[in-house]
Design a binder for these strands. Structure first.
Lengths: 344, 344
DNA sequence: CCTGAAAGCTAAAACGTTTTATTTAATCGA
DNA sequence: TCGATTAAATAAAACGTTTTAGCTTTCAGG
């Protein structure tokens, strides 16, 4: 049966009251607008009986609020982001919001396109992993009083809310863990990037090396290098050149390439070298050897992001909600960072 | 500068024409509605000069179309689905559609909740990976003339469009590959489920065994078993009991658990046993040994899904677009299914 | 009996479009 | 010259809400 949808008008007509009354009642303003108990009940009952659901489009048009939150990440198919998406999704639906996920591929142009796209579509709020040069556009959103929360990285120069983790502390601690396990020549493979999270990670590594009077071996892969073979070549040469006994990979992406290089070119090293990766992945647990990983607190990040965004939406722009949160990552110790433990 | 948004009315006022005229011109109906070249150009130019963008909410309210497509998968944080999401996202934005991703966890109740949620929000179309008992609700969508495309699995009993892969053929071929590599006792670990894709996979395996006169060893893990330890136990016993020289894992999830079991309990076997998994994952490539995988054609699936949905949206309900597509998966041969190849 | 306030309800405008029906002016054919 | 046609444009309704500003009715107090 193709039950055409009921409108407020239908209810009003059926009960012989005005549309206004129905609207007041359904919006819980019966008291405030002094609608009688009797009428209130009548409306409520009837609405329930026909299973009335308001037309959200009309509601949005009138109120200017779409109940849509955009979550823009670097790549939704990335383990970290997709796990987080799953968490955010649950919270949002629970609160009556829809979430639009999109990927900016860490490119400014794409970020800009997406932001513009969504501004046209009166999205209510933005949760963004910003690409490097998108500062200006973020600042504009903020100055237009549109709720924005950044995460994973941020721009120190602009006043925004953000949820990040203490990257340098996390890497420092993890590096120290390698040192404690008597690795001496610890390499750090990262991406050449001035984004806050990458700089912090490198800083954490360098500080740990300095604190232990160890030599620093940093390989910065050009971040614009899309050719995986080129990257593999770089890593291969790097491993060959330095006499490393451990490697810290600053991103999951690099870990994957790095492990591939090791498997292809230095298979004997896989059980000798200390290995730590930034960002965990289910599969690292079952690797041979299981890979030690710096793991971000996904649940916590997701919750923090959503409560922030929801509070920003609730608070008027004259008393903005301020929240700049720095969470801690944890180190999941697995065999790959212990020289003695059985490696298989 | 907080540039308040322009409306059609603003344009009309500025140019001294009617709102109607502006609307016609902007919708490309100038010709059809015989608006003069002169006025048409004037409107177009002005609209461009102020960078006019229509209010989509108002548009949607009037036309009844929201330009939103829902993509409901089992779990958006699953590798296969998140990769696919990334592909769908691109196509959709390109065509002016937004995509709402959501996860039903393969549970009927959650599926139903989500479908109801979205029906209230006048979503235009649905791309769904259906949970086992959601048949009725899907049938309702279809009978209400709402575009739906199923994928990954489908319901043979109801007339829907779908995009699936030939699971039985894919598994048959992959099993044959094991046989060709002289494995004799090939186990098949799957989930107890009557969903089309799982039945087809098991069928493929059984047919291959029969064709080669080999014994069938199937382990069906109860699909409702959420306790991972229990599942590990089952797999562990299974491996101990049968004298297997190869295992075919019917889902990625089982592969991960299975590899964990092997690592923990039978580490010596990892380099002896033939292993094949259904659904690839970037990390299988760098595993020790690299894992042979049945790989679904993600791009193709994504494109097929989107063209189907877009065509359904375009075609009127009196001449519905019909598309039931069965694609082929490919076998990515890696070391884990070759007894002779170096395994590291 | 009148006044003013309170209680209870509602008409109508507004949000920004699309679309139907209509108006006006110009042109044409005979 | 007149009626008919066509070209060009538009007024107004509609989509389904929310919200402002009023409108009745009742009743207490003087």
């Amino acid at each position: 049966m193709k039950n055409k949808r009921h409108s407020i008008k239908d209810i009003a007509a059926a009960l012989n009251v005005s549309v206004t009354t129905v609207s007041f009642v359904l919006n819980g303003k019966a008291r405030e607008k002094r609608i009688s108990e009797e009428v209130t009940k009548k409306v409520l009952d009837y609405a329930k009986s026909i299973n009335y659901k308001p037309n959200q489009l009309a509601q949005s048009l009138r109120t200017g609020r779409s109940k849509i939150i955009v979550v823009m990440v670097e790549d939704i198919s990335n383990y970290f982001f997709s796990k987080l998406a799953r968490i955010i999704e649950d919270i949002a639906y629970d609160k009556g919001y829809k979430v639009l996920f999109c990927s900016n591929e860490n490119k400014d142009e794409r970020s800009r396109d997406l932001i513009n796209l969504f501004r046209e579509r009166q999205v209510d709020a933005y949760v963004i992993v910003p690409s490097p040069g998108i500062q200006q556009d973020i600042a504009e959103l903020v100055s237009d009083d549109i709720p924005v929360v950044l995460f994973d990285r941020y721009f120190p120069e602009i006043e925004t809310n953000y949820v990040i983790i203490d990257n340098s502390e996390a890497v420092h601690k993890a590096s120290q863990h390698l040192v404690d396990n008597s690795y001496k020549n610890i390499g750090f493979i990262t991406i050449s990037s001035s984004q806050t999270q990458m700089e912090a990670r490198q800083r954490g590594y360098r500080e740990a090396m300095q604190a232990n009077n160890l030599k620093e071996f940093v390989l910065e892969v050009p971040f614009y290098e899309k050719n995986i073979e080129k990257v593999k070549e770089l890593i291969k040469e790097y491993i060959a050149a330095q006499g490393l006994d451990a490697i810290f990979f600053a991103t999951n992406y690099l870990t994957q390439i790095g492990l591939e290089v090791i498997r292809e070119s230095y298979p004997e090293k896989i059980n000798e070298m200390g290995i730590i990766t930034f960002d965990d992945n289910d599969l690292f647990k079952i690797y041979f050897p299981p890979i030690t990983a710096v793991s971000q607190p996904l649940e916590e990040i997701g919750e923090e992001l959503m409560t922030t965004v929801l509070k920003m939406l609730k608070n008027a722009s004259d008393k903005p909600y301020k929240n700049q949160k720095i969470l801690s990552a944890s180190l999941i110790e697995r065999n790959s960072s212990f020289p003695n433990k059985s490696r298989a």
